[in-house]
Simulated scan of single mutants.
Amino acid sequence: MTEREIFLTAEGLAKIEEEYEELKTVRRKEIADRIKQALAFGDISENSEYDEAKNEQARLEERIAKLERTLRNARIIDNEEISAEVVSIGSKVMVKDIEYNEKIEYTIVGSAEADPYEERISNESPVGRALIGRKAGEIVEVHVPDGVIQYEIISINR
């Protein structure tokens, strides 16, 4: 199975690297210490502290493996690659919801660093897919579970 390329901004890469280092150096040691402490209680067959620490260790190792895959397959979006003419990954796009006459600024990012609460949307999301490749002034239709949303692209920035 070939792994697909994961698009990251320089900022997104820095966040992932920071989390990765924190998990490997700090959290691993904390969990290992908890496991040692739980083992000191004796019989592990009915030791809930041991079971919980082992479960947490498994979740941690799974997260570390995911971050390693992300870093291994990362393609960093260079600011010089980002066009102000056409929406692409890394673009900051000001759109106007035509129905509600509200303006929203989205940053289009790869799925690994998407955070809708910060208006950082994935290029794979319905809105992201609809905006990619479009120009300022265009009206795009986004098919969402509740129907169709129409956005007018007001501006595109790096």
Rank of each mutant, 00 (worst) to 15 (best):
E68S: 04
E68Y: 01
E68N: 02
R69E: 12
L71C: 01
L71T: 02
L71F: 00
R72N: 13
R72P: 15
N73C: 13
N73H: 15
N73Q: 15
D78I: 06
E81R: 07
E81I: 04
I82K: 09
I82F: 03
A84D: 06
S91M: 10
S91P: 09
V95E: 14
V95K: 14
K96L: 01
E99W: 13
E99I: 11
Y100V: 09
Y100W: 15
N101M: 05
E102C: 06
K103I: 05
T107D: 13
T107A: 12
I108W: 02
A112M: 10
E113A: 05
D115Q: 15
P116C: 14
E118I: 12
E118R: 14
R120T: 09
S122V: 02
N123C: 08
N123G: 13
N123A: 07
E124Y: 03
E124M: 03
S125W: 11
P126I: 02
V127M: 12
G128Q: 08
L131T: 01
I132N: 12
K135Q: 12
A136G: 04
G137Y: 02
E141P: 06
V144E: 08
V144L: 08
D146K: 04
V148C: 05
I149Y: 00
Q150T: 08
E152Y: 11
E152F: 01
I153C: 01
I153L: 05
I154R: 00
I154C: 02
S155P: 12
S155L: 11
S155E: 07
S155N: 12
I156R: 06
N157W: 14
